[in-house]
């Protein structure tokens, strides 16, 4: 069975190996130079407030010239697209093609049981899918380590230096790529079992996986672990008050109000001392166009207006990674069970 799985999977395995090699070469060639730029930036030996400035100027210089922004975006895109491609090109045809061409009648009437046939196929190709995606992710993590450290010193905000909770970064680092790869692959296989035709199964797999990958960061990931809440006085960080852009639209940059940087802000907004959300400035602070924003902010602070923030602290990065990966792996197991049930009992 191992031989058969390898023989039928050979072409896809060679494609995957080619992707892995090109990816590795690209990052291996540019990675050391990026690391040397970081070393030359002096961030490593910085003290106090100079760190933030050094990190920002380091990222700024990378942003201004050189291949690094493009490489960063490209490599992250490859990691995010790989599970989808695995689902479409490895998972969906795995069983659907056998059903479509009738070769299942050959494969399932040898001396090997159907359950074993499926277990070896799902197991080996599934492991290859997880290894490929996580391999790409680890390489990117090594390459982007200087950027990650710069972000840690507060050089956030740009695409190149997106925080760890930015959807693309969260989805391409840590252990989540393992979960996505396993889920996408088994999703493809199960769709193939259900639809029994490879091309429609490929299209449906892509559609379902895309919807899941958009829905999870938007609606599910923020609530995997109950968020922390804090109500911070506006006076805590004076510079944050600059964020008041218009008297009709009160909003403050919330991350500046938290004690540790890098948190994932889920929602934030000004509230009164009684806890009621402030939609328009209190009458006492004067309403109307031409109000001096700095004066307005000071007035708000005196009125007891504070900022309510709901967030996931940066220390939860790994906890959220584990929970999300576990959910994807459980979904993959459930879909695998469905494949076994259909192949072993229902199909012919």
């Amino acid at each position: 069975m191992i031989w058969l799985t390898w023989r039928q999977f050979r072409a896809q395995a060679i494609t995957a190996a080619a992707v892995l090699v090109v990816f590795a070469v690209l990052l291996a060639v540019t990675g050391p130079h990026l690391a040397s730029l970081y070393a030359a930036s002096g961030i490593a030996g910085c003290h106090g407030s100079s760190c933030g400035q050094l990190a920002s100027s380091f990222v700024g210089r990378l942003q201004a010239a050189g291949p690094y922004p493009a490489l960063d975006v490209l490599s992250i895109a490859v990691i995010i697209l790989t599970p989808a491609m695995i689902g479409v090109f490895w998972g969906a045809p795995l069983i659907a093609r056998e059903l479509e061409t009738g070769t299942f009648r050959l494969a399932w009437t040898q001396s090997v049981s159907r359950a074993r046939w499926l277990a070896v196929k799902l197991g080996l190709v599934g492991l290859a899918a997880m290894a490929l995606t996580e391999g790409l992710s680890l390489m990117q993590a090594w390459w982007a380590a200087p950027l990650g450290r710069a972000v840690g010193y507060g050089a956030g905000g740009s695409l190149l230096a997106a925080g760890r909770f930015a959807p693309a970064v969260f989805a391409s680092h840590g252990i989540t790529p393992l979960g996505y790869a396993a889920f996408a692959f088994v999703l493809g296989a199960a769709t193939g079992v259900l639809i029994r035709h490879a091309i429609p199964a490929m299209a449906v797999t892509l559609a379902i996986f895309a919807v899941v990958q958009i829905a999870v960061p938007l609606w599910i990931r923020p609530h995997l672990i109950p968020a922390d809440h804090v109500v911070a006085p506006l006076s805590l960080v004076q510079t944050s008050l600059v964020g008041v852009t218009s008297p009709d639209n009160l909003s403050f940059p919330a991350d500046g109000l938290l004690s540790e940087p890098g948190a994932w802000i889920l929602s934030s907004g000004p509230v009164t001392s009684a806890g009621q959300p402030v939609i328009t400035p209190p009458a006492a602070c004067g309403v109307g166009r031409g109000v001096n924003l700095d004066l307005l902010a000071g007035c708000l602070a005196r009125q007891g207006v504070r900022e309510s923030i709901s967030y996931q602290p940066v220390s939860r990065f790994w906890a959220l990674q584990w929970v999300e990966t576990a959910i994807y792996l459980i979904l993959a197991l459930a879909l695998a069970w469905y494949c076994f049930w259909r192949v072993d009992r229902r199909l012919a």
Partner: peptide, 8 residues
Amino acid sequence: AFGARLNP
């Protein structure tokens, strides 16, 4: 080879 591997 398929026949050989799948049938004792």
